[in-house]
Amino acid sequence: MGWDECLAELLVQLGDRGLVAIVKMDGERVRDRWTVLVSGKPLGGELVRWDGNDLDAGLSRVIVQLQERVPGLLE
């Protein structure tokens, strides 16, 4: 499965659990071109945000933070 299919599946899973997820690439930035942002009721009004240049690493970090904040979220 390619990263694009994995990303689509991840976004669907997050949405199914009441979360809002945004993946943005900003071509005007020299550094931290990618932003991943997740918010929603399961996070109690807080959000998870990551900015960087390696999208795979950022998605992994966001997933870890989500699992720490909402145990069982992505099982």
Rank of each mutant, 00 (worst) to 15 (best):
G18W: 08
P42V: 09
L74Y: 03
R17A: 11
G44P: 10
G52Y: 11
K24V: 08
A57L: 05
D32T: 05
G44W: 12
K24H: 14
L43C: 07
V38L: 07
E28G: 12
P42T: 11
V38H: 01
E5T: 14
L11F: 10
D16V: 08
I22T: 15
A21D: 02
D16Y: 05
L73S: 00
V48T: 05
D16G: 14
V12C: 06
S39M: 15
L11W: 03
R33M: 10
Q13S: 11
R31S: 10
R49Q: 11
S39I: 13
E68K: 15
S60P: 02
D4C: 08
G58R: 02
G40D: 04
G72W: 12
M25V: 07
G44I: 13
W34F: 13
L7D: 02
T35P: 06
S60I: 05
E5D: 13
V12D: 04
V20P: 00
G40Y: 11
C6H: 09
P42R: 03
P42Y: 08
Q67C: 14
G44F: 15
C6S: 12
K24G: 04
V64K: 12
D4Y: 09
E46D: 12
E68I: 07
L10M: 11
V38E: 02
P42F: 10
R17W: 03
R69A: 13
W50H: 03
R49V: 13
V23T: 05
M25A: 11
V12H: 02
W34P: 02
R61L: 07
Q13L: 14
L66Q: 00
